[in-house]
Design a protein around this nucleic acid. Structure first.
Length: 850
RNA sequence: GCGAAUGUGGCGGAAUUGGUAGACGCGCUGGAUUCAGGUUCCAGUGGGUAACACCGUGGGGGUUCGAGUCCCCCCAUUCGCACCA
């Protein structure tokens, strides 16, 4: 913006005020973390960002501003606040840029961090920057390696050859959590299954704790549900089916052992190891054809088709023996049974399972009702609870009793036992990338691995000339020939592990490093951990509902078992801020356009220059979509405080919104109105309106206390939009007032300060104070001051509003009813009718029923 | 297909949880200040009407003196999950 400043200033000069106070806070170390231990603590944490080359857009500060308001208010409320920021700075984008430009990823990362940090500081966020950290800093990842080493020593990390998700475009494997519908969730690149040697963390060992400990958390319920579903605990039984004419046994896993009497066939996954052994000669050809068909279709295709796909399968020709009734039932193979879950084999009870029912219908297999409750199990399966029938010793029992009884019955005979299964798989923890933490491991000559001694940490990333995998498919670190050479504990030559850790590693524990970021002798100080942990409020996007939040909980529980942290859970309270969207404009060819390049003609959006139609979509903000709004520009034009206020004023914090820059002048106007209550814009001197007079303005006092109450509650509940409204109401009442008592105005400035710290400091100073408003105690509200002198009562006749009356707040019910009946708008509707009922809702309305 | 959430003026959103729908802001209209634009201030702003009436919280039913709020049935949008036995 080059336009000249208007001569008459309507309010304060944000350029001067923002710079002045940001400099002063830095000089005074206003936001340094307190070291005394006399006050209660409050650890408030933002999910730290990956410092991308795009820089910050207005979506980022939404959550950061919210936590900043809470942090500032909590300081004023007498808490020691830990408020910190860091960088999740290992990751793919920097590495890919390095591949293109040859620049080292650390250089790229450092530059991006500089940009991000400057942008955050421009907003006046009250971070203790002396605790800044970056996961790609050796001083940090030394301890990531240290924790991994501990996990390795505790047998929680192992190397295995297993089918893994391999992404050819990235040249690396990925975890289950990073793959959705056969694609990498970040980039959409296709992923395939490959058998590879990889490092795995035993997260499944913690499945129960990760599930059970969700119960005490104050988290969004949707996120807890996602974690529960991801862990996917199923309680059931393993049941052994004999094979007719063979010694082989087929073990199936089922959650419904009570329906065993309705089991009319058995299905093996096509990959099941017993298939070859049991298939009869007549069926061999058909089975071979089917298995080949299935093998051709990728995992992705198989999962994409999902539940409503038509069922396929072929019989093996062999028969199984149903253990509960000795019935001989056919054994099929079908791809709706997954080799990777349970035992890779199921028994089918079509009367009680939709998939089995669909299969039975398609292949004409028998359906036997075992649980009563459905009108016709031949047509519809019944999955609910009910008395059992056709079930021998289970007849008459309901589901749960039947399950217990049949499991006991099977166990007595060695035919089965209770079993619990999880959907959660162990965490594939190695990546074939350069820009990540090297594993603190060396491989001995015999192929086994040992951890490097603690004293040798960190294992620093070597410099290499190219960041791609080697020609023979080894990870990039294999290029560092000198670095590879190591010596094992026995003094023999050994080789360093060349995989690196996934990006999630650093974020699994960064919240602990913030406690003692300067210490190089420990990961964190145990005394600091005892004081500050757990994180009292954790705020970030819900895109991490499973990945980061599950991984971090897992590491935390491992650390807890190792006696290194004092709490079972790291984040007892979690809040997701909603995403900020912006319309994007894309042509049929896939090219994006800036908003100023398009216009609407006859209801159709087109490119101004060419008239080419474009598709509009409410989209994530990103540079590649040309829909980014930069907070720096807004701060320059309206000041940081107006931007902060608007971020929170847009709507509820948890909701997604479309960014609309037109709203920012509104919050700026509000701040100017606050400013003018104190300062005469003509002279820049105090206007004298704030002073000793005006104490008889009950309405002004009431709105002040209403605002204090609302803002105080907002800090607890993270509901800022209505709190800002309430402050606006105060200013709307104060503006026409002839005088404002100084204590009232000061209380107001204090509750405004967390939202608009720069202008609040400036006002505070002009009020004659010499210390920062950030150290002022939080004002209290008086419930008695919230009462109105005059009540406005709505008067309804038979439920329809007809009039409004004003009565003194101490009026009796009798007096109010009399006034209501006499009210102008009411009379015509009462004329000639008898009042059947009179309802009075205290202080709100009267309803006269005729 | 299953599950969850959401649906209120031209727009973002309020509504003390069954009690005066539309707080606050944006936008818009009119007026004052101003040479003018901008700024600021005042008034207005759900639809409708000259004014009433009347109609209004996605649609349709219901409970109630009274429903945005509770119940039932639809519709739409968004987000998850997707053969997990």
């Amino acid at each position: 913006m080059t336009e000249t400043k208007v001569d008459k200033k309507p309010g304060f000069d944000h350029t001067l005020v923002d710079a002045k106070w940001q400099a002063q806070w830095e000089r005074d170390q206003t936001y340094a973390t307190p070291t005394d231990r006399t006050k209660p603590k409050y650890y408030i944490l933002d999910m730290f960002p990956y410092p991308s080359g795009d820089g910050l857009h207005v979506g980022h500060p939404k959550g950061y501003t919210a936590t900043d308001v809470v942090a500032r208010a909590k300081r004023m409320m007498g808490f020691n606040v830990l408020r910190v920021m860091g960088w999740d700075s290992f990751g793919l984008p920097a590495e890919r840029r390095a591949e293109r430009t040859g620049e080292h990823p650390s250089v790229i990362t450092e530059r991006n961090i500089g940009i991000f940090k400057k942008q955050l500081q421009r907003l006046g966020l009250s971070y203790d920057w002396s605790r800044e950290l970056a996961t790609s800093d050796p001083r940090f990842y030394k301890w990531t390696q240290w924790i991994f080493r501990m996990m390795f020593e505790r047998d929680l990390a192992f190397r295995a050859e297993m089918p893994v998700n391999f992404c050819p475009a990235l040249g690396t494997v990925l975890s289950n959590e990073e793959v959705h519908e056969g694609k990498y969730v970040e980039t959409g690149d296709p992923v395939e299954r490959r058998l590879m040697h990889q490092w795995v963390l035993k997260i499944t060992q913690y499945a129960d704790k990760l599930l059970d400990d969700l119960d005490g958390l104050d988290w969004p319920s949707g996120t807890m549900t996602k974690q529960r579903d991801w862990i996917g605990r199923s309680v059931g039984a393993n049941v052994k089916f004999g094979v007719v004419g063979s010694d082989e046994k087929i073990t199936v896993f089922t959650t419904r052992p009570d329906t065993l009497f309705g089991g009319t066939w058995v299905v093996l996954a096509p990959e099941h190891p017993l298939v070859d052994a049991i298939t009869t000669p007549e069926q061999r050809a058909a089975v071979a054809v089917y298995r080949e068909e299935v093998g051709k279709r990728s995992e992705r295709e198989r999962t994409m088709e999902a539940a409503d796909a038509p069922k396929t399968g072929v019989p093996t020709g062999a028969f199984a023996v149903n253990p509960v009734n000795g019935a001989h039932i056919p054994i099929w193979i079908a791809d709706y049974v997954l080799a990777s879950y349970g035992t890779g084999a199921v028994f089918a009870c079509p009367a009680g399972d939709e998939r089995d029912h669909a299969f039975a219908t398609k292949f004409g297999l028998p359906i036997v009702e075992v649980v009563t409750g459905s009108p016709d199990v031949q047509k519809e399966p019944f999955t609910g609870d009910g008395p059992h029938v056709n079930s021998g010793f289970l007849d008459g029992l309901r589901n749960e009793e039947a399950k217990t009884k049949v499991i006991a019955w099977l166990a007595e005979r060695g035919l089965g036992e209770a079993s619990i299964r999880y959907k959660l798989r162990d965490w594939l923890f190695s990546r074939q990338r350069y820009w990540g933490e090297p594993f603190p491991l060396i491989q001995r000559q015999d192929g086994s691995f040992e951890a490097v001694p603690e004293g040798q940490l960190p294992i620093v990333l070597p410099q290499i000339d190219e960041y791609r995998p080697t020609r023979d498919g080894k990870p990039p670190l294999a290029r560092a020939e000198a670095w590879l050479k190591a010596t094992d504990a026995a003094g023999q030559p050994a080789t360093r592990e060349t995989n690196t850790m996934p990006q999630w590693a650093g974020s699994c524990w960064y919240y602990l490093r913030f406690l003692s970021p300067q210490r190089d002798d420990v990961a964190w100080d145990p005394e600091e951990e005892k004081y500050w942990m757990p994180v009292d409020l954790y705020v970030g996007g819900n895109e991490h509902a499973v990945l980061h939040l599950l991984y971090a909980r897992f590491w935390h529980k491992v650390l807890h078992d190792a006696g290194l942290v004092s709490t079972k859970e790291p984040f007892p309270r979690l809040f997701h801020q909603g995403m900020v969207h912006k319309t994007s404009y894309r042509s049929a060819a896939g090219k994006y356009f800036h908003a100023h390049e398009v216009e609407q003609r006859d209801g159709q959006w087109v490119v101004k220059e060419t008239g080419e139609p474009v598709e509009t979509k409410l989209d994530k903000m990103s540079k590649s979509r040309y829909n980014v709004v930069n907070p720096d520009d807004l701060c320059a034009e309206y000041g940081a405080d107006a931007v902060r206020l608007y971020e929170l004023f847009m709507g509820p914090l948890e909701d997604g919104v479309e960014w609309d820059t037109k709203g920012v002048p509104g919050t700026r106007r509000f701040l100017d109105r606050v400013w003018r209550l104190l300062v005469d814009p003509e002279t820049d001197a105090l206007s004298g309106k704030v002073g000793d007079l005006g104490g008889d303005n009950r309405e002004l006092e009431r709105t002040l206390h209403a605002a204090i109450k609302k803002v105080t509650a907002a800090v607890a509940d993270l509901r800022f939009n209505t709190a800002i409204s309430e402050m606006m109401v105060f200013v709307n009442v104060a503006t026409p007032a002839a005088a404002i008592p100084r204590p009232w105005f000061e209380a107001f400035v204090k509750i405004l300060a967390p939202f608009a710290p720069h202008v609040a400091e400036e006002i505070w100073q002009r009020l004659g104070h010499t210390t920062s408003i950030t150290a002022e105690p939080w004002p209290a509200f008086d419930e008695a001051k919230l009462a109105r002198d005059v009540l406005h009562i709505g008067v309804q006749v038979s439920g329809k509003l007809r009039a409004q009356i004003e009565v003194p707040s101490d009026a009796t019910e009798q007096a109010i009813l009399t006034a209501a009946k006499a009210a102008d708008g009411v009379q015509p509707f009462l004329a000639g009718k008898a009042i059947k009922r009179e309802i009075y809702i205290k202080g709100r309305l009267v309803n006269l029923v005729v």
